[in-house]
């Protein structure tokens, strides 16, 4: 599991996750996700390269998203594959954190 960040125009922090978001993967990214969530105002979580998402991986997305939201910030999820998206939908998280497939739309949602 890998995690990388870059700053996009408009004050958007893009966090790209890469790998399997199972218990082990969640443990790898948790600390960095929490650090990012401590300062980001507009967070784009890029799920393009996530090939598995379990409940502990969901937790690694939800807790930082909650932290950003609680400070008045915004979070969007970007480009999960079909199976990862079905996990997001089954858990109901898609109704709380918008999912976008188009980068421009994701950026617009954070404006």
């Amino acid at each position: 599991m890998q995690i990388s960040t870059d700053e996009m125009p408009g004050g958007i922090t893009r966090v790209a996750l890469d790998g399997r978001m199972d218990i082990a993967g969640a443990a790898v990214v948790d600390l960095k996700m929490n650090l990012i969530a401590g300062s980001a105002k507009k967070l784009l979580i890029d799920l393009q390269k996530v090939d598995f998402l379990g409940s502990m991986g969901l937790r690694s997305i939800v807790l930082p998203a909650r932290a950003v939201n609680s400070r008045g910030g915004k979070v969007v999820l970007f480009a999960p594959n079909a199976m990862v998206e079905s996990v997001l939908k089954t858990s109901g998280i898609d109704s709380l954190l918008p999912i976008h497939r188009d980068l421009d739309a994701a950026v617009a949602a954070l404006a």
Binding site: G54, S55, L58, R59, V62, L63, A65, R66, S70
Partner: peptide
């Protein structure tokens, strides 16, 4: 999202 129990999804 504030009500979401993060550990309860499995």
């Amino acid at each position: 999202i504030a009500e979401l129990e993060p550990g309860g999804q499995g």
